[in-house]
Amino acid sequence: MKKRSRKQHKKHREGDIPTGSFSDIAFLLIIYFLVATSLVKVKTITADLPTGEKQAQAQMDKTPIVNLRETDIFFNDKSVSIEELNARLAALELAEALGSKKVIMLESTRMTSYELYFQALAAISANGGVVALVEEDE
């Protein structure tokens, strides 16, 4: 009983939470995020590569093929520049095509650089094609 009465009689101190430095802390955090953030979005090409077993040779023959031989590009066995490849792929109207008619085969030699590979991949993707990678026979 005594304890209770003592507790009840205790006066609560009135104290303010110091909020004066809140804005300083907030601006410090802003500066941190400004420094740590990169607002620049990366530029990419989208390629959904289909996976599956090897197709029959007969069907492969009908599909347009892009060959990359080290520094040269061939489209259906004819040497082309990257601009010409873009134009030829655009002429195929791949975006409107359906199913397997969208497929463009991409074959490359061992020493083909990623630069050339990327350009071919970008040209096919930009024209609405689906890339099918051709594997070398072992």
Partner: peptide, 17 residues
């Protein structure tokens, strides 16, 4: 990296696919 040869990057592309 743009200079890397096919045997380095293609297995990774295939792995993602």
């Amino acid at each position: 990296d743009a200079a890397l040869p096919k045997e380095t990057f293609e297995p990774v592309l295939k792995a993602i696919a």
